[in-house]
């Protein structure tokens, strides 16, 4: 019969032999992994890589299998996507025409190093990416990391010989300077994880919904759009919500360059 037993009568604080061995074992394992992280980051990634790849496959399978969307929602989404696709095709043709008038030919001048993403959010805490290229491929700390569409997503924070770690702009407590819209209104983006940002603005800031958000130092490529501007009457500051252009949860390849 189960019952709650007062520990004071059985030697409070005593450690069982099993508990001791579990603790000692965990301490050894932690030390080994810590050693690898500090002195041999490539080995740590090499050991973790099969697990990360399996995890990515499992996550994709689960999200596809257990999609909570109804049939009508999916049909609506397909309709919207088709419409957006048509609009984008039109924009593309316009931009292609404009591109012909540009005198500088940038074809064949692909910059940077392309790298595969080994682990990404949501599996990686802190909004970090682990790449399969490192200092051997001329990747250095503080280089910018871009998505396939050329949108900056973060910067290199650590490098091994064959691997590198990227701290995304949306990583918790990471502050990035940027601006919004044609007025180039300066803002500070503070990462809160999960690809999201917290941005405070003065209440009178001339920021409207739909304006593009840029990050300094990475060229004038927008990283997202303003989807909500909050201005509380009782507060001196407001805030904006940003919809990032890049879905970090599905990043498979990135480009790294200065």
């Amino acid at each position: 019969m189960p019952y709650f037993h007062n520990r004071s009568s059985t030697g409070r604080g005593s450690v069982s032999p099993t508990g001791f061995f579990v603790g000692a074992g965990l301490l050894v394992i932690t030390s080994v992994f810590l050693f690898m992280r500090i002195f041999a980051p490539d080995v740590l990634v090499y050991v973790s890589k099969p697990f990360w790849q399996t995890g990515a496959t499992v996550t994709t399978f689960v999200s596809n299998t257990f999609s909570l969307k109804s049939r009508s929602d999916l049909l609506n989404e397909v309709g919207t996507l088709r419409q957006t696709n048509g609009e984008l095709a039109t924009q593309l043709s316009i931009l292609s025409e404009k591109n012909k008038t540009v005198s500088v030919d940038l074809a064949g001048e692909e910059q940077g190093v392309r790298a595969h993403v080994l682990v990404r959010p949501p599996v990686s805490a802190y909004d970090t990416l682990v790449l399969d290229r490192g200092s051997e491929s001329d990747i250095r700390i503080d280089m910018y990391v871009y998505s396939n569409l050329g949108i900056p997503v973060g910067r290199i924070s650590e490098t091994g010989n064959k691997t590198a770690r990227v701290t995304l702009f949306s990583a918790p407590d990471i502050k990035t300077q940027g601006w919004v819209g044609d007025n180039k209104f300066p803002i500070e983006l503070v990462g809160i994880g999960g690809g999201a940002f917290k941005v405070e603005i003065p209440k009178e800031a001339p920021i409207e919904i739909g304006e593009s958000v840029f990050i300094t130092g990475s060229g004038a490529t927008p990283v997202g759009t303003v989807i909500l501007v909050t201005r509380e009457p009782s507060s001196l500051v407001g805030s904006i919500s940003i919809q990032p252009f890049v879905n970090l949860f599905s990043l498979t390849q990135v480009t790294v360059h200065d």
Partner: peptide, 21 residues
């Protein structure tokens, strides 16, 4: 085993810790 929580937390940081965080 309460030690598991401590180990899992440290292991998460070993795997994914980002500088400045």
């Amino acid at each position: 085993y309460p030690q598991i929580a401590l180990f899992t937390g440290i292991f998460a940081d070993i795997l994914y810790y980002a500088p400045k965080a």
